[in-house]
Write a protein that binds this DNA or RNA. Structure first.
Lengths: 167, 167
DNA sequence: AAATAAATGTTATGATATAAAACAATTATG
DNA sequence: CATAATTGTTTTATATCATAACATTTATTT
C-alpha cells in the first residue's frame, strides 16, 4: 500500500536537501501544529482586522478595552481597571492621559481615598461608546464568520479560556 | 420564574453603580467573550510558559521558530525564512546575527545568487536542536494538558487556522 | 549590450509595548 | 506614633515592529 511515498520524492518542492547529516527531521514539529505559534498568528490576524476597523476612530485594542470596562462599571479605580487588563499601572497612566485628552473619559479624585482616581466616561465618551460598539460589532461578526459560526466561536473561547491564567 | 434577578441586586460586587445615565450596559460585551481579547490573553499565557521553559537555554519564540525551520529545510534563503514567520527581513538580520554569534546557525554565501545567504545549522546547532526539542516537548505537553487532551488541541489548531491569513 | 528595474541583505530610525525602579502623597497597620 | 503598604506618577531600559534608504547583485526591458 504505497510505500514509495518517501523513498522517491520527485517533487522539487519537497525533495531539496532532506536533512543532510543526522537531525531526525521527523522529530521537528511542523510550525502549523505548534499551539503557541498558531495562536500568535491568529491573534495578529484578528488584531489586524480590529486595527483596520478602528483606523477611523483611532482607537487601539487596549483603549477599547478600557472604555468598555469603564462603561460597564464606572467609578472603578485606575489600578483596578489596569489590573483587569493585565496592564502595569505605570503604563496605564499614558493610556488614560490619552483618553482624557480626547475627552471621552476622566479621572475623578475620590474623596474617601485621596490617593486613588475613579474613572468615568464623559458625556462625549458615552456618545463615543455607541459608535465604538457599532464598529466593534461589525468586526466581531467578521471574526465569527471566519470561524464558521457562533458555535465555533463559543468553542474557541472555551478552549482559549483553558489556556489563560493558571500559571 | 425569578424575574427579580436584575431588579434587586443585593450583591455588593455587582450592584455598585449600574450605569448611572443612559449607556445601555446590556450592549457592552463581556471581555471574556471577546475573541480578540481572549485570544491575546491565551497567547500571552502560552508564551509565558514557553519563555519560562526556555530561560535556561536563553531562547526566544522567534529564535526557536527560525532554528526549527532551518533544521527542517537547510539552505533556504534568509528572506524565505523571514517571510514564512512574518518577520520583516530588516528585523531578521539582528536575530540571525544572534544565532550566528551563539554558533548554532550560519549564513553561507550562495554561489548562484551572490546577493542571498543560505541558512544552515552548525554542528553545535544540531546538538542544540535536540536539547531545544526536549524542552519544547515538555512545554507543549503542558499546553495540551491544559487544553484537556490532543483532541482539544487539534480542534483549537483548526479553529485558529481559520483566523489566520485570509486578510 | 546598455539601461532600467527588481531582489537581497543591511543599516538606521522611529513608534509602540512592556517591565522595573524610584518617588510623593495618602492610607493602613504595628 | 512609627512603620507598611497602596496609589498614581515619572523616568528609564528593553524588546518588538515598521519604514526608508542604501550597496550589491540579478533580472528585465529597450
Amino acid at each position: 500500500m504505497a510505500l514509495e511515498d518517501e523513498a522517491m520524492a520527485a517533487n522539487p518542492e519537497t525533495s531539496v536537501p532532506l536533512a543532510s547529516n543526522s537531525e531526525d527531521i521527523s522529530q521537528l514539529p511542523e510550525m502549523s501544529s505548534i499551539v503557541g505559534y498558531v495562536l500568535r498568528r491568529a491573534q495578529l490576524s484578528v488584531f489586524q482586522d480590529f486595527i483596520e476597523s478602528f483606523t477611523e476612530l483611532k482607537l487601539r485594542p487596549a483603549e477599547f478595552s478600557v472604555l468598555n470596562l469603564i462603561a460597564q462599571r464606572p467609578g472603578q479605580k485606575q489600578s483596578e481597571i489596569a489590573e483587569q487588563l493585565g496592564i502595569k499601572r505605570a503604563n496605564f497612566v499614558a493610556l488614560m492621559d490619552g483618553l482624557e485628552r480626547r475627552g471621552v473619559a476622566e479621572r475623578r479624585k475620590s474623596p474617601e481615598d485621596k490617593r486613588s482616581h475613579s474613572l468615568h466616561l464623559t458625556v462625549e465618551g458615552e456618545r463615543f461608546i455607541s459608535e465604538m460598539l457599532s464598529v466593534w460589532n461589525a468586526h466581531e461578526q467578521r471574526i465569527i464568520r471566519r470561524l464558521g459560526g457562533e458555535a465555533e466561536r463559543d468553542k474557541l473561547i472555551e478552549l482559549l479560556g483553558r489556556l489563560s491564567g493558571q500559571d
